[in-house]
Design a protein around this nucleic acid. Structure first.
Length: 423
RNA sequence: GGAGAGAUGUCUGAGCUGGUUGAAGGAGCACGCCUGGAAAGCGUGUGUACAUGUAAGUGUACCGAGGGUUCGAAUCCCUCUCUCUCCGCCA
């Protein structure tokens, strides 16, 4: 959420930031803000009078004076206050609703651009392998090895669901364990196993609501949402809390399944594991001091890259331009893995600095040691990594002419010693 | 699911027969005194948010959340959420 004070005092700067992202008009919210403050001053004066008189009444009563005239006057005042308060409440709700629908302002350094095409490649790692045989896509490799079963998943549930079987199920779990091990032991994150359903407040805190409700799976009987990413439960760990400055930074990692409607993606990536309603992901979340959140973003991105390096799969890192930036993000690096069947790099991780945007929505603060004032923390998160897409990348990049798949060296331990799938 | 109890500031814990209560007492924390140093002791201070003001300050709101009664509500009434105890059911 954007700060109304900042909008009020630096209107042009904020407007310029929003212009980099699309069509947003600050005027309606500014007009509400002005109206609200005028009414506030007015009603607060009235309340002040009410308080002063209220304190006098017990004294007058003690002196046995007649208060009926005052009561009558105060009743009128009280009614006026109630009307004004109700009106202000309406404006408050309206304002908040509007503020929640403004995206974050991109960091000033971020490349200004329209869409994906304007993103900038930052670095590349590894060389895509040269295959001297006809390569197969992961959905064919998986089905042929009987470790993936899409048809039965569709029967059991429906389109865009998948089922892992035997060594497939094991590989899925191996990846989760390997990623968690790496982040916990080598990168010093604390593992969280959060609830897989969250309430409306949590979804609003991280920015999924109110604007993107159609993307989420909703359970009406309880008004809960299936987590679209572990970012939601984990970032909300500290919602409405004030941390001590020395508690920062805090690093968390969490495995969860992720549930997404994929509204608006009809017809895209319909085969395989790339775009499902349910997929596994290991997520990294950081709560950091505002002064060094950009160093933390670089480190977070490297932590995600480390997984692909250890798995020896080629990838590249892309900086998103302002037009391609996620709603809540101020700066984002996407990590794209080499996917032979697509013959291009495919997004496997998105690492973002939200600055104070989520912290403001979720009201996550810390107490500044020197000024004693509360400040909003900066939140960051990144996939580390999307497990389904990593699974697909392994199948495709490690496929052999005989249809088997070599297990990446780092995973054999988690695969109970298995070095080749399909043998 | 049934019956009951509760939710107060960083914590603990009063108030709950409505009126100087932002909220007693205690603990913690910060600063000062004391001390060779420390502990103890003494003193002072110690919430958040919004508005207003160049500022010091001032005002308003907040005792789980939201409504209501009243001139006035932490205190009375209603609804909801959560916690605890007992019973039932259950992985």
């Amino acid at each position: 959420m954007l700060d109304i004070k900042r909008i009020r005092e630096n209107t042009l700067e904020v407007q310029a930031g929003l212009d980099k992202r699309g069509n947003y008009n600050l005027n309606p919210v500014l007009m509400l803000d002005e109206k609200r403050r005028k009414m506030l001053v007015n009603v607060e004066e009235m309340k002040n009078r009410q308080n002063i008189v209220s304190k006098e009444i017990p004294k007058l009563k003690k002196e046995n004076k007649d208060c009926s005239q005052i009561f009558k006057e105060m009743k009128e005042l009280s009614d006026k206050i109630k009307d004004l308060d109700a009106e202000i409440r309406l404006i408050d709700g309206d304002m908040r609703n509007q503020l929640l629908r403004f995206p974050n302002i991109p960091n000033a350094q971020v490349i200004v651009g329209k869409d994906e095409a304007d993103n900038k490649e930052i670095r590349k790692w590894g060389e895509p392998r040269n295959f001297d045989f006809e390569i197969k896509a992961h959905w064919d490799i998986g089905v042929d090895l009987d470790i993936l079963d899409f048809e039965r998943a569709v029967k059991i549930t429906g389109a865009r669901f998948s089922m892992f079987k035997g060594e497939g199920a094991r590989l899925q779990r191996a990846l989760i364990n390997f990623m968690l091990y790496t982040h916990c032991v080598e990168h010093h994150y604390t593992e969280i196993s959060p609830p897989f359903m969250v309430n409306r407040e949590s979804m609003t805190g991280t920015g999924q609501l109110p604007k993107f409700e159609e993307d989420a799976f909703h359970i009406p009987s309880k008004d809960l949402f299936m987590v679209p990413t572990a970012e939601v439960p984990v970032t909300n760990i500290y919602r409405d809390e004030i941390l001590a400055e020395e508690d920062l930074p805090q690093y968390f990692t969490a495995y969860t399944p992720c549930f997404r409607q994929e509204a608006g993606s009809a017809g895209r990536d319909t085969r395989g594991l790339i775009r499902n309603h349910q997929f596994d992901k290991v997520e990294m979340v950081k709560f950091v001091h505002p002064d060094n959140s950009y160093e933390e973003l670089e480190a977070l991105t490297k932590n995600a890259e480390k997984i692909l390096q250890l798995l020896k799969i080629p990838y590249r890192v892309v900086e998103l331009c302002t037009g391609d930036l996620g709603f809540s993000s101020a700066k984002t690096y996407d990590i794209e893995v080499w996917m032979p069947s697509y013959n291009r790099y495919v997004e496997i991780s998105s690492c973002s600095n939200f600055e104070d945007y989520q912290a403001r929505r979720a009201n996550i603060r810390f107490r500044d040691g020197s000024s004693k004032k509360t400040r909003f923390v900066h939140t960051l998160n990144g996939s580390g990594l999307a497990v389904g897409r990593t699974f697909a990348a392994i199948l495709e990049n490690y496929q052999q002419p005989d249809g088997t798949v070599t297990v990446p060296e780092k995973l054999t331990h988690y695969m109970w010693g298995k070095t080749v799938i399909g043998k």
